[in-house]
């Protein structure tokens, strides 16, 4: 089946639209997180998402609506731990991540197990995305992208040299808090695309792919975005054709792009030297 035939299915169209937008948001934030050595914040917040989903299911609420505020609060918690408890980012992420998983397991135990397919939350299923979820994804993605666009230079400056950014009058604390809150929203969105277990891949892989060949900061953002969107489109289409799990296929396509970029980068380096 060619891509135009596949596009006749509304679930494919919805998956393409929502998946591309979420991938775009992940790729932009991913560059900032990777360069700040906070790559695993996506993983940690995804674990909190697991706990939030469990709470939502226990209370009979829409899991995403519970997850967004809880994950946003957790992301700020990571920031506070780093600032107040003098912890490195990885340790702070590790604490919040463990609490998220432990909380989820306890809630699941209290409920006596959930009568839903937890598998879909753990590994995602973008092909089953509803129209409401597509609209929610579009709105939240536009909000996140707008904020990053408006504060692009503040993010560039604080990511490169936080101390200098402060001296130039940038409110670094506010900018950093905003970044982790945006990451929290994005992680919840990404849960539908690749699932809780693979969310960090959407944040990390496009960014590190771009870093292999990028020639400037702006160029890195653009390449990361292209890589992420193409991975989602190719991943969704391939999984549909080959009857493979969509989230995992998207991640594997992302990885193939990374390998290609890595080899291209090495070839360019050898050619130059």
């Amino acid at each position: 089946m060619d891509i135009f035939s596949a596009l006749q299915y509304s679930f494919i169209r919805k998956a393409f639209i929502a998946g591309s937008l979420i991938a775009l948001v992940c790729s932009i934030l991913g560059v900032l997180l990777v360069l700040r050595r906070l790559s695993l914040i996506g993983d940690g917040l995804a674990h909190v998402t697991f706990g939030s989903v469990a709470i939502g299911l226990l209370l009979g609420l829409q899991p995403s609506f519970v997850a967004i505020p809880v994950v946003m609060a957790s992301s700020l918690g990571i920031m506070k731990l780093m600032q107040k408890a003098r912890l490195f980012g990885d340790a702070a992420i590790g604490i919040v991540s463990s609490i998220g998983i432990a909380g989820g397991v306890i809630v699941a135990g209290l409920s006596g197990g959930f009568n839903v397919d937890l598998f879909s939350f753990l590994f995602g299923n973008i092909l089953s995305i509803s129209s409401v979820e597509v609209v929610t994804s579009i709105i939240l993605s536009v909000i996140v992208l707008s904020v990053v666009f408006l504060f692009y230079n503040e993010y560039f400056s604080t990511t490169f040299d936080e101390e200098f950014a402060r001296i130039t009058g940038i409110n670094v604390k506010r900018i950093n808090s905003l970044l982790v809150v945006l990451t929290g929203i994005t992680v919840v969105l990404a849960m539908k695309v690749v699932g809780i277990m693979l969310t960090s891949a959407l944040l990390i892989l496009p960014a590190v792919t771009a870093l292999q060949i990028a020639k400037s900061f702006r160029n890195t953002m653009i390449l990361s975005s292209i890589s992420a969107i193409l991975s989602v489109l190719v991943g969704i289409y391939s999984s549909f054709l080959l009857n493979l799990p969509t989230g995992a296929t998207i991640v594997m396509v992302n990885f193939l792009f990374f390998i290609s970029a890595f080899l291209s980068g090495r070839a360019m380096h050898i050619k130059l030297s």
Partner: peptide
């Protein structure tokens, strides 16, 4: 540079431009 990342993908021109932001109001 605190936490300087030698693989940071910024050009010389981009980095020098960072100094301009102290003069600029939102959006910079």
């Amino acid at each position: 540079l605190t936490n300087f990342n030698p693989y940071f993908p910024a050009t010389v021109k981009e980095i020098v431009s960072l100094g301009l932001f102290s003069k600029k109001k939102f959006p910079k």
